[in-house]
């Protein structure tokens, strides 16, 4: 399984708009549609992609330490507060009733939280700071400059804070060994020094900005990201799959009601229709777009390597089996000649 974590993540190098569209669609649908199909697909896909990006160990630890205990806690807690529902299981000594509906709803709620947690694992890696700045910039150009300047200033400030503290130590003002009233005085000294430094730094930065023409004309907001065919294609795929899922939900194909009675299309008290299966399949595909993109690139690279190995004119003969590594023709050759991509 190690090759999974080692292969390159093609989805995170896609255009930020594609990344944002994907997470908005997947998280939005998972939050608003509490159908078991959607939640199950979402959780499994999130864990799968998380494992690709951060490795199985990380995901296993997250599952064991946070997600599974979290599900159990919420599933137990919900019925003790929530007493709605028609199927009475038993009555507690204080007169509160525990209902089946409340328990099931608790589980669904817990899984929703788990889904969000699991998706955020990959989101943290994929949506880097500069993509965030970019996204803000498309909407509010000035805000994005302020964000970018803040991200510049924070490490600088922290370093200055460290240096000033150390310098004060050199002058005999040591926080660690000082008495409490001295500690307050040292802290005040450091704070006032940092304040002066920040003002000074701000003057230099504003000089540097004005000297480079800031404020003289209307500003544009440059983005180093480019739209290419692949990004457009990805966006179209994400949009249409999300569209199908939403339409399916709207038409009751993925309807889920937990209170006062449980009505879940395709599972309980409601028949499954075309919309149910269409919606579920669309969402399954949607949630696995990043993994698919990644695997597709693995395949492309394998094919490329094979073509190099066999010489020109042989690219077409590549089979899908290559992806899985069970290349019957030249498994031996491959080991000798070509450094494996992993």
């Amino acid at each position: 399984m190690r090759w999974m974590a080692r292969s390159r993540d093609s989805f995170s190098v896609a255009h930020p708009a594609v990344n944002f569209a994907f997470y908005a669609a997947v998280l939005g649908i998972s939050m608003f549609c509490l159908h078991p199909f959607v939640l199950g697909i979402s959780l499994v896909s999130a864990i799968l992609y998380g494992a690709f990006v951060r490795g199985w160990r990380h995901m296993a630890r997250l599952l064991g330490v946070f997600i599974v205990p979290g599900i159990i806690v919420v599933a137990i807690l919900n019925p003790t507060f929530n007493h709605n529902g028609v199927t009475l299981l038993f009555t507690l000594s204080n007169g509160n009733s525990i209902t089946l509906e409340a328990i099931v709803y608790g589980v669904a709620l817990a899984i929703t939280l788990a889904v969000a947690t699991a998706w955020f694992v990959s989101l943290n890696v994929v949506l880097t700071r500069d993509k965030f700045v970019y996204a803000v910039g498309r909407v509010f150009p000035t805000a994005s400059l302020i964000l970018s300047m803040s991200f510049r200033f924070i490490p600088l400030f922290l370093r200055q804070f460290h240096d000033t503290t150390v310098s004060q130590r050199y002058l005999g003002h040591d926080m660690r060994s000082a008495r409490w009233w001295e500690k307050i005085r040292i802290a005040l000294t450091v704070t006032s020094s940092l304040f002066t430094w920040s003002m000074e730094n701000a003057i230099h930065v504003s000089d540097s900005m004005r000297a480079r023409g800031y404020g003289r004309r209307h500003r544009s907001s440059y983005s180093p990201h480019r739209w290419d065919t692949r990004n457009v294609l990805l966006l179209v795929v994400i949009a249409s799959l999300a569209g199908i899922t939403i339409v399916a939900t709207a038409n009751g194909g993925l309807a889920a009601q937990y209170d006062p009675t449980i009505v879940i299309s395709g599972i309980h008290a409601a028949p499954s229709g075309v919309w149910t299966w269409l919606g579920a399949v669309a969402f399954l595909l949607l949630a696995n777009v990043p993994v698919a993109v990644r695997l597709f690139d693995v395949y492309l690279w394998k094919r490329y390597e094979r073509a190099l190995r066999l010489g020109p004119g042989t690219r077409r003969q590549t089979r899908w089996s290559v992806v899985l590594g069970s290349d019957d023709v030249s498994a031996e050759k491959q080991k000798e000649k070509v450094p494996q991509w992993r």
Partner: peptide, 22 residues
């Protein structure tokens, strides 16, 4: 240190050009 405005190298290079509205 004190004349760098933004957090990324590419953004710093683009900063003056953005000010020209290009």
């Amino acid at each position: 240190e004190s004349q760098i405005v933004t957090d990324k190298v590419w953004h710093e290079l683009a900063f003056g050009l953005e000010n020209q509205g290009l």
